[in-house]
C-alpha cells in the first residue's frame, strides 16, 4: 500500500478552482516529483495534503484518512511540509526555528540525535545557532526550512520548490542533501519543482500537472524521454 494516496482531490480558493480532481500515489521510501507550469496546482496539491486549503476528495496517509484533519493534526501524524516561501520563522533564531521543528516531540535523546544529524547535512548550523533567521541568505533559509522539518522526524516530507530563487550551485547542493535524506533517513519525499531537470534526476517517479489535473505521470526515465515533457518542461 502506498504511504500517501490522493483520490480525486478538488480544491478551490473562493470561486477559483485550483485542483480539478487530482489523484496520485507516493510509495513508502520513494521520491516523487510534482512538475508543471505556474498555476498548474502544484502548491495547492501540497496544501491539500497538509490541510491548509479547503478540499473535497480523499487523502490517505499510512492507512488514515486525513482529508478532514487540521494542519496541526496532519503534522503530528508525521508529515513535514516545507511550504512555498520556506515558512521561515524570521524573527526567531536558527536554534529556535529548529526547536520549533521538534515542538511535538518529547524524546530528548531523539531530538538531540536528530539535531546532530541535521548539523551533519547543514554544517554551517552549529556556528550560527544564535543568528536571527530572517538575516540568513535565501539558500540558508531553504536549508533551515528543510532542517526544521527534519526535526519533526517526519515519515513524509513535502517540499515546495526548494530551488526557487537560488543559484544553480546551491540548488545542486540542496538536491544532493534531499537525496541523502531519502536514502539515509528513509524519509519519503514529495517534491514540487519548476526545475524539471533536477527534479527528474532526483525522483524515481513524477507527475506533471496541467491546470489542476494530472496530465502525464510515469517513471522519471520515461518522462525524460517523453517528447512533450521534454519540450514543455525540460527545454531541449
Amino acid at each position: 500500500m502506498a504511504l500517501l494516496e490522493l483520490a480525486e482531490v478538488v480544491a478551490a480558493y473562493g470561486p477559483i478552482t485550483a485542483l480539478h480532481g487530482v489523484s496520485l500515489k507516493v510509495e513508502e521510501g520513494g521520491v516523487v516529483a510534482l512538475l508543471g507550469a505556474n498555476g498548474a496546482g502544484k502548491t495547492t496539491t501540497l496544501r491539500a495534503i497538509s490541510g491548509t486549503v479547503p478540499k473535497t476528495g480523499k487523502v490517505m496517509f499510512d492507512g488514515h484518512d486525513i482529508s478532514k484533519r487540521a494542519p496541526e493534526q496532519v503534522a503530528r501524524l508525521g508529515i513535514g511540509h516545507v511550504p512555498e516561501g520556506r515558512g521561515t520563522l524570521g524573527q526567531l533564531t536558527v536554534w529556535e526555528n529548529l526547536q520549533m521543528g521538534a515542538y511535538t516531540r518529547r524524546d530528548k535523546a531523539g531530538i538531540k540525535a536528530d539535531y546532530d544529524r541535521v548539523c551533519g547535512y547543514f554544517t554551517w548550523i552549529p556556528s550560527r545557532r544564535a543568528q536571527v533567521a530572517a538575516t540568513l541568505s535565501g539558500g540558508e533559509q531553504q536549508m533551515l526550512a528543510i532542517a526544521r522539518a527534519l526535526m519533526m522526524r517526519p515519515r513524509l516530507l513535502l517540499l515546495d520548490e526548494p530551488s526557487l530563487g537560488l543559484a544553480p550551485i546551491v540548488v545542486q547542493e540542496i538536491f544532493r542533501i534531499i537525496r541523502a535524506i531519502n536514502e539515509q533517513d528513509k524519509v519519503t519525499i514529495l517534491v514540487v519543482e519548476q526545475n524539471a531537470n533536477i527534479a527528474l534526476q532526483t525522483a524515481e517517479h513524477a507527475y506533471v500537472l496541467e491546470v489542476g489535473r494530472v496530465a502525464i505521470s510515469g517513471s522519471s526515465t520515461n518522462l525524460q524521454k517523453d517528447e512533450s515533457v521534454r519540450r514543455s518542461y525540460l527545454g531541449y
Partner: peptide, 17 residues
C-alpha cells in the same frame, strides 16, 4: 517559544504541529 512562533507565524506554526 511556541507562543511567540504562533503569534508571529501562525501558518508556519500549524505546519509544525
Amino acid at each position: 517559544l511556541a507562543m511567540r512562533a504562533a503569534s508571529l507565524y501562525p501558518d508556519s506554526s500549524k505546519l509544525l504541529g
